[in-house]
Nucleic acid binder design. Sequence first.
DNA 1: CAGTGGTCTAGACCACTTC
DNA 2: AAGTGGTCTAGACCACTGT
Lengths: 286, 286
Amino acid sequence: MADTALFLEHLRAETIKDHASSTPLYLRVQRGIEQAIDSGLVEVSDALPAERELAAQLGVSRVTVRNAVRALVKKGILIQRHGAGTFVASREAPRPQPLASFSEDMRTRGISTNSIWLNRSTGLPSPEECEALEIMPDQLVSRLYRLRFANGKPMCLEHAVLLATILPDPNVIESSLYAWLDAHDRRPTRAIQVVSAQLADASQAHLLSVPTGSACLHVRRRSYLSINKLYKLYKIRITTERALKDEPAPPVDANDKILIERDRPIEFVRAYYRGDLYEHVSELHY
Amino acid sequence: MADTALFLEHLRAETIKDHASSTPLYLRVQRGIEQAIDSGLVEVSDALPAERELAAQLGVSRVTVRNAVRALVKKGILIQRHGAGTFVASREAPRPQPLASFSEDMRTRGISTNSIWLNRSTGLPSPEECEALEIMPDQLVSRLYRLRFANGKPMCLEHAVLLATILPDPNVIESSLYAWLDAHDRRPTRAIQVVSAQLADASQAHLLSVPTGSACLHVRRRSYLSINKLYKLYKIRITTERALKDEPAPPVDANDKILIERDRPIEFVRAYYRGDLYEHVSELHY
DNA sequence: CAGTGGTCTAGACCACTTC
DNA sequence: AAGTGGTCTAGACCACTGT
């Protein structure tokens, strides 16, 4: 290690910093180690001080250190080898692809984006949408239909459908749907995509400014909100409604049902990308 | 819960079972809980006994119980809610897509597969392959080129390149490459895929039995082997060589280099799928 | 052999949920 | 107020690695 003393000093400072705040100790240690690596204080291939040593130097228990290290190992930033030590992993190695929105995806590729709205409305779902969103036919949905541009070129024809309970009014979306969802703490945590190759039909080709019969990538995506976030949103809604309408609390059963389900689909997207301009990246695990 | 006493009894039995073996205690507890859920002993929406209660009943510490539960929560089988309890998650909810081989992928879709070899050889890598596999131009690679059929129809034109150190002789592969890799403990643990839409050119179209200009899905995949497995394979190779040739151990530096890198690409695949027969599924996380 | 991470115990207090 | 999971401590022994 380049300078163990300096590393420990930084870590101690970082660990003490939010002492008054409610940030858990192991998260502060974790962030301290992460920052030390990012700032180059410890370099790739360096061994971290032993867990017992770290614990002693920071004045915390070894369990707490292990808690912090475990998260960083899962992130791929550290590598532990039984009997040998804990090492800083190489930085060049690929990291998992996060669930990014179209705009974010393009931004990371260094491409500017804009879009024009073809339709925004709220209404009843089609049978296909009912199945995709796991809802009954009388539950309202919001629709966003637009043509997206990348670096000024038409790139993608996108049709998004969301639960109206998640997005009550589609007209509030300015350019980035996910930015709005983020701001309202209801951004999907997980998505399943099905990608297939198709030939553009006449109307798609016209909108995308390509010849009919060009190759295009058809992406269908179902996005899920984690049970925890859903529950929190649900609780908030219930409380607010009760406060407003002076109604009694809902029956416990209804509550229980929601608690125990897993992630719930909140968004269903169909998109047609120009085959000459877009490639879809995905990561698989064994 | 249907029958707490029965659940605890099962769990106690499962926990004690491999007492003599070296299986860690928390893994035995974990497996016990998992089996109880799979066998229907506890049902969806049931709350598990409290962690302290479980620990007391099993005669283990609460930390050990938490260790077991944490893994099951990560797997999506259990859901924990602060202050409320630990619940069995719904089983219908979708589970993440594992990294499957073509044959496995098709089998889960209920489709039979076969293939004909177009070429199998070992040789020096092209510049593109060097970059994809992160190797020098003098390091040998094995190539597998074949036409794959699904339910008797030509489905996919696949060109796979692997490090010769991983697959020394491509002719040993009968039908499933991944089955062989599995048997030799060198199956990739992770892969990154890039999917794009293209029109089939004349030779591709001919092999796939579709008209020239049909939509096809072009998939490029880099598959990685985890650092741990790599290290174990490497160590084994070193030891064997030493035993055979009576050579001294390799210099420590070479060893160290390998230890600290992350996952390493061992396979590079280019495949062209018929757009009318294949859809690519992927999952994203936030 | 000494040093490391991996597992385990028996406590404790805090934050949150439920009633 | 009682019960739950979330965090934390101060120990202990085992299995593995390096030399």
